[in-house]
Design a protein around this nucleic acid. Sequence first.
DNA 1: GCACTTAGTGCGCACCACGCAACATATGGC
DNA 2: GCCATATGTTGCGTGGTGCGCACTAAGTGC
Lengths: 207, 207
Amino acid sequence: MTDDAMNLRARHKQATREAISHAALRLAIDQGPSGLALVRVQDIASAAGVSPRTYNNYFSSREEAICSFQADQSRRAGQALAARPADEPLDRAIVAAMLELYTDPEPDRAGLRMIMSTPELEGEALKAFTMAEGPLAEAIAARAGMDPQRDLFPAVTAAAVAGAIRVAGRHWLASGSAGSFAGVVREALACVVPSAPAPRAGSSSPA
Amino acid sequence: MTDDAMNLRARHKQATREAISHAALRLAIDQGPSGLALVRVQDIASAAGVSPRTYNNYFSSREEAICSFQADQSRRAGQALAARPADEPLDRAIVAAMLELYTDPEPDRAGLRMIMSTPELEGEALKAFTMAEGPLAEAIAARAGMDPQRDLFPAVTAAAVAGAIRVAGRHWLASGSAGSFAGVVREALACVVPSAPAPRAGSSSPA
DNA sequence: GCACTTAGTGCGCACCACGCAACATATGGC
DNA sequence: GCCATATGTTGCGTGGTGCGCACTAAGTGC
């Protein structure tokens, strides 16, 4: 079939994208949070083995390139929850999905520290986390039998979960990565999803 | 004493800042979400009656100037909660503080729609909302008698509250601003604030 | 009134996003 | 295997921006 041939280009494209992203993150980490301005587009491009113009075809800002991996991860949050067994209660499903998404490979401390302690990257990192909320909200709504457009619960819970994971990351870094990240995530999520499974009487979700 | 004289300069500085911010938001709204790129720094500066260089002394990006008012609002979240009576329970205090901060003057729909539906502004808006979490977490910790450094609850709750308000704003816009914003905020906060009173049927937007 | 501080400004430079057009390589039909 | 086509890569040029630097003017304390 043409899949293999097609994949040749697609894979090359994906490889280029990852090369640029990886190079950007690597250079940013090398320079440290304070010297992000010293990382020039030219440096990223040459480190990735492409021209500056090609870099710009993939990303329109250094921040976007650096936080690309996090954006990809967030994009999988929705399907991670949807992939949980249907009979699993919402709260357990959320915790399990987030744990396997964010702690299966423990996050790279240097990269996490970089994007969380650099003001210029903070906005992009926030955008990446927020990107997960939409699909996550839909998955929550599907599991709770709610309408994502009418009920606030799914979107609010998704935002709370994303925020909890973000806080967990910050806390994990601040504590010198003493314990496991999974433990911190569990503790953080426990603050926002304990009462989740019970459908609140206040919200209207006529079955 | 010298306060008045000092204030003369400080006030002029503040006035300049607000003039620039207001001009930026006004121009952005005029151009609409799709034409933000057409708003040049020169336009903002001339609309505010200052030189482009002066604009750049206050803000280092159009997005920052446009979302300045929201950042200022977020900066008051902590003291809004701290200002609540000490004997008020945490959940009620949070709801009351957020309501008087975000709904005392109902938010400007055009401005809110602008910053929430423009991708370029989304990051800055997120940063503005996140800016509220720190002080908010400290206020929560103080009220709950916790240590903001050790306990995750204050920071996670602060993030959840900020996220709930953000979702409330989005939902309020999407619903055509049908009900009062205060009602939507109440309903959203009820999803995340521990033991928060469920929205009374009739007092807030029913569904 | 005088010295000091600080906001506002003009100038200039380095950098960046992006449209455009040319080129190389993969793709798919024959 | 060959050619027409689609698509990724690159160089170039341009408009725009962020910001350091030096200067001026206005506010401020003694």
